[in-house]
Write a protein that binds this DNA or RNA. Structure first.
Lengths: 210, 210
DNA sequence: TGCAATTATTGGGCTCAGCCCAAAAACTAG
DNA sequence: CTAGTTTTTGGGCTGAGCCCAATAATTGCA
């Protein structure tokens, strides 16, 4: 209600968020994510350990800051695609696909999230996919509800849930392949399209427009 | 090489594994998963705290013991389905589907894993799906490699990965809906079939037999 | 019977993430 | 200058997960 924008009173933030991210990025390169402690990060950033938790709920959030910033636009992208916009968005699965592709189009090829670069630390690639999925949870709920609304399904409908989560999983696989493609990876869009289209194809006849 | 079956020498295990599971189940009912400590579990089971880690790598594994036991049969089920068996297993996606359905057929309708019953503790249902996926990682790698082999794809192929992880995600959604269906839930098979079939349909033309 | 070798259990101690709380710091509005 | 607000900080605490060395219990062999 009120915490949006600048609040007028109180002690100003030390603008520490960016500093924490920078310090963490440096340390993740020097050492690894696993062997970097929160205390090291905050010491390098010049703040107290407790201050860290004023900016990030957990250490692992540092791995996903880029992804989180991407997905900030997810609700609006979904809304635009489902509202029909000007294009073909009549079918729910296609609307979801277009929304996700539009999001991917806005992602600079340069900044790959830490979570995708430090693969070796997090075990198998599939384990990382799962970890990514777990991160996508919050935004994924938005996706599920969008599917339910667009297809006229009631809340908790199995087909809607299955499609939403399968689409998310395929997207994660695409992002991982994209990140693993090296410096000349180009845009995420073709990767995402290749992984997402089959899922949409499969669910399209079962999830007609309401 | 040698740790399989009973090892002949050494101090015998206190048969504590089942006791630990029982003690944990009791405490999860009395209190919740979150507010139950490992020390409480081991005290009730009559063993030392350190002994816990001789049987489970982490506390969260207690939530997934049932699932893990189910998925023990995954490799053999995959092998059977891919070897053609007697049935229709010519197509990779169908082979995977049949293997998973066969697995689901062997699951008693009674024992729902803790991870699925303690939903409220773990946040949203989607978050739980993701958590489940993260558990499936180990077995999911098996699935991915099976797809790669059956479809003649090279390791790390995007389509194979996307299909494997999408199928896993849909399976999780199915299991969750099944667990949420209450006492009269019946077999997992129809749930799994409904969620899995569209995924297979979508990928079938793109993943032909090698 | 006794002596290795082997394996499980145990106690002790340690690091680190995450949380809580209360005091102090820095700012704004009156 | 004062009261209210927000952030920072220090202190301390719990609990998971790990490591290590000591001990208990068993088998195989001599």
């Amino acid at each position: 209600m009120n915490q949006s924008d600048v609040s007028k009173a109180g002690r100003p933030r030390g603008s520490s968020r960016a500093m924490l991210q920078e310090a963490a990025a440096e340390l993740f390169l020097e050492q690894t994510y696993a062997s970097t402690t929160i205390e090291q990060i905050t010491r390098r950033a010049g703040v107290s350990r407790n201050t860290f938790f004023n900016y990030f709920p957990a250490k692992s959030d540092l791995l996903w800051v880029e992804v989180d910033s991407w997905l900030l636009a997810l609700p609006s992208a979904l809304k635009a695609a489902l509202a029909g916009g000007t294009a073909q968005a009549t079918q729910p699965t296609d609307a979801i696909r277009h929304a996700l592709l539009a999001l991917a189009g806005g992602i600079p090829a340069g900044d790959v999230p830490w979570a995708l670069t430090q693969t070796e630390l997090m075990g198998t690639t599939l384990e990382l996919q799962a970890s990514a999925l777990s991160r996508f949870t919050t935004h994924g709920a938005v996706l599920t509800r969008a599917v339910e609304r667009a297809a006229g399904r009631q809340e908790g409908d199995l087909l809607a849930q299955a499609f939403a989560v399968a689409a998310l999983a395929a997207s994660c696989a695409a992002a991982l392949a994209w990140a693993g493609a090296g410096v000349a990876r180009g845009s995420l869009v073709p990767f995402l399209d290749a992984a997402l289209s089959p899922v949409c194809d499969g669910f399209r006849p079962l999830l007609p427009t309401r």
